[in-house]
Design a protein around this nucleic acid. Structure first.
Lengths: 354, 354
DNA sequence: TTGTATGCGTTATCAT
DNA sequence: ATGATAACGCATACAA
C-alpha cells in the first residue's frame, strides 16, 4: 500500500459519500453537524491518517499560526532562555516558533526578515544585531502590517512594543555594590555603544560613581566586545600600567570571565584585591571555580511577557492603528564570591546571594 | 495610503493591463517573456512592494522550502553548532530552518514532529531525546514520505539516513590516551545506555581496557546524566571509598566539569593524581582554569554533511523507493591540561594539543 | 510572447 | 444538517 499520497478531506468525503464541506465542519467541531456524522468523520480521518494541511488553512485564513524569533545567537543562554519563555506561552495557543540567528550581522537579519514575511508569520520577535544601524529592513515588518516585538536589544521605532530590562539600573546596582565593598577605582568593560543596552549600563555605572562622589576616570572605561579574549586583554592592558583598578564591572559575563582568568594568572586576589561583577548571569558564572557575581536579566520572564504582549496586540487589532507597549523588567543582582569580601552579608531584595 | 492589503501578482497585472500569468512568468525569469515586459513587471513589483506569498507557492508546488530541526536543547554548543552547519549549507538553496527543542522529552518531540509535518516541511533533521524509546512518532515522518535525517543521536530505522561520529572510537581514544598517561584504574561516567552514543562510548572504553590488559572493574563505571552536579556526586562517592581511580573518562563534558570541581575541593591534583577527559569539546572546556581534555565531535561538519545528505536524497527521488546513507565521522581527541602529565607530547593526528 | 483556465486543500457563504 | 461553490495567491498546461 503506497502511503505516498497526502490524504485530504476529499478522500474522507468520497469514502463516506458526503461533501468535503461537511467533513471540514465535522473536523472543526461545528455545532451544526450531527453527532453521528461527526463520529464517522473522526473515525475515518484516523483510519486514513488524515493530517490537516496547515498551508491551505494558512492561505485561506491569512494566519499561519507561526511566529518568528530573530536573535544574534541561539547558544547564548540568555537568548535561548528568552526563546524558552516565548515557546512556553505560545505553544499552548497553537503557535509554531521559527528561530533564526543573525550572527550579529544586519544582512542576515534582513534576509531572515524577508523570509519570515514571505512565510507570512503572524508576528516577529527580535533582538537586533550589533551591526544594525539602519532600520529600513526592520520597518518592512511594519509596512507589511506584521506585529513586531523587540526584546532586550531594541531600536526606537514608533508603534513597536518592547520588553527590556532596566539596564541603567543593572549598571547602577552592580557599581554601587562594588562601591559598598570598598572599591574606589572601578573599571568598566563597556560594550558596543551602538546598542542601547550597553549605553544604559554605562550610564548606570557613571551615575553610581557620581552619586557616591567618585571621580570618573576615562582610562578605566574600556570598550570590549563580549568575548573572553577581550576581557583578558583588557586586564592585561590595565595591569601593565600604574594606578590599577580595585574592581571591574563588565557589561558581559564572557569578558568578565576572561578578566578573572587573566587576573588569576597575574596572581591578583579576587575579591580581596579586585572585585568583579559581570552581566547576564550566564549559567557558567555559577559554576566557576571562583563563582562570579552578575546581573540576572530574568530572560524566561522576558520571553513570556513578550509573548503576552504579542497576544494582546493581535487581539486588540480591531480599530486600533497601532499599539505600543514598553515593558521594562527589573534586573537582579546576584552576589557571588568574585565580589563578596564579607563572609555574611545582608542582601536587600532584589539582591540574592548564593 | 493604507498599506494594509497584501499586494499580489493580480495587483501588478491590473496596473499593467497584462495577465497574472505573464506577471508570474516575468517574476520567475521565464525565458519566454520579452525583456520589456519583464523589466516593467519587476519595476512595478518593487514600486508596489510586492512580496511573493510562499504559502500559495507551497500549496501549489507541494514544497515549502523549509526544513525542521529537532534537538534536545538549542543552548548546548554541540547542537547549535550542528544547526549552524545545516543553515550554512541550506540557506544558499533558499531553505528556511525551523528549530524545535524537545527538552529531552519524547512527548514534545512527537508534538513537534506533528507540527512540522502539518507545516509540510521538506525534510526533518533530528537528534532524538533521551526519553525516546518507542519510535512510532518518528515513523510517522516516513509514512508521510518526508525525508528524515538523524544526526548524532539516532534510532535504527530502515531507510533513514544518519550522520554520526564514531563514538566507539571516541571512547577508545580517550581511554587509551589516559592509559598512555599511566592510568590503570580508570573510572567511566557513562550516560543513558538507551542512547546508542553512550553505549558506543562505553564499549570503546571497555575495549581499550581489554586491549591493554587492564581488568574491567564494574565499580568504576558510574551511570550519570549530563549535569554538572552528577559528576560532582560521582566523584564524592568514588572518593568516599578505598581504591580510588587514577583517571576519569566522562561521556559528558558537564559531568566532567563537576568531577573536576569536586576533585579540586578534595585537593586532588589534576592531572598528576587523576587525569580527566570529557566528551563533546564544549567551548568552556578550553576556558577552564584547568583546561579540560575532551573529544571533539566536529559538529559544524556534522550539520553540513547532514544537509548534503538531505539535498542528495531529495534530488535522487526519481524512482528510488528509499535511500539510506550512514555517514560516520571521525572524532578528534583534544588534549589539554586535565589529562596531560608530560610537558611536551607528540600528538599523532587526529590528536591535537592546545 | 502572452492570455485563459485550472488546481493545490481549506473554510465560509449561500443554498437546500 | 448538509451540499455546492467561491476564494485564498500562485504556477502551469494548454490555447492563441
Amino acid at each position: 500500500m503506497a502511503k505516498n499520497e497526502k490524504v485530504t478531506i476529499y478522500d474522507i468525503s468520497k469514502k463516506l459519500n458526503i461533501s468535503a464541506a461537511t467533513v471540514s465542519r465535522a473536523l472543526n467541531n461545528n455545532p451544526k453537524i450531527s453527532e453521528k456524522t461527526r463520529e464517522l468523520v473522526m473515525k475515518t480521518a484516523q483510519e486514513l491518517n488524515y493530517k490537516q494541511n496547515r498551508l491551505a488553512l494558512a492561505l485561506k485564513s491569512g494566519k499561519t499560526n507561526s511566529i518568528g524569533v530573530i536573535v544574534p545567537y541561539i547558544n547564548r543562554n540568555f537568548f535561548s532562555a528568552v526563546i524558552d519563555g516565548i515557546e512556553k506561552q505560545l505553544t499552548p495557543h497553537g503557535y509554531n516558533v521559527i528561530i533564526c540567528q543573525s550572527h550579529e550581522d544586519a544582512i542576515n537579519e534582513a534576509n531572515h526578515i524577508n523570509a519570515l514575511l514571505n512565510t507570512q508569520v503572524d508576528g516577529i520577535f527580535m533582538s537586533v544585531s550589533k551591526t544594525t544601524h539602519d532600520t529600513v529592513h526592520i520597518e518592512k515588518i511594519l509596512e507589511n502590517n506584521t506585529p513586531l516585538i523587540f526584546f532586550d536589544r531594541k531600536k526606537d521605532i514608533p508603534g513597536v512594543s518592547s520588553v527590556t530590562i532596566d539596564d541603567f539600573r543593572g549598571g547602577y546596582m552592580a557599581t554601587e555594590h562594588l562601591i559598598q565593598q570598598g572599591a574606589q577605582r572601578i573599571a568598566h568593560f563597556c560594550g558596543d555603544l551602538n546598542l542601547e543596552i550597553y549605553k544604559n549600563r554605562n550610564n548606570g555605572f557613571l551615575r553610581a560613581l557620581e552619586d557616591h562622589n567618585i571621580p570618573i576616570n576615562k582610562n578605566l572605561i574600556i570598550h570590549t566586545n563580549s568575548r573572553i579574549e577581550a576581557g583578558a586583554e583588557a586586564v592585561a592592558k590595565l595591569w601593565a600600567k600604574k594606578n590599577r583598578p580595585d574592581a571591574i564591572f563588565s557589561s558581559s559575563d564572557y569578558a568578565a570571565l576572561g578578566a578573572i582568568q587573566e587576573l588569576r594568572k597575574l596572581k591578583v586576589k579576587i575579591p580581596e584585591e579586585v572585585g568583579v561583577v559581570g552581566f547576564s548571569n550566564e549559567p557558567f558564572t555559577k559554576y566557576m571555580e571562583l563563582p562570579m557575581s552578575s546581573i540576572d536579566q530574568t530572560p524566561v520572564t522576558m520571553g513570556e511577557i513578550a509573548a503576552q504582549v504579542f497576544l494582546e496586540q493581535i487581539n486588540n487589532k480591531q480599530h486600533v492603528l497601532s499599539v505600543e507597549k514598553r515593558v521594562v523588567l527589573a534586573p537582579e543582582l546576584v552576589i557571588r564570591k568574585s565580589s563578596n569580601k564579607t563572609k555574611s552579608l545582608k542582601g536587600t531584595p532584589p539582591v540574592s546571594t548564593e
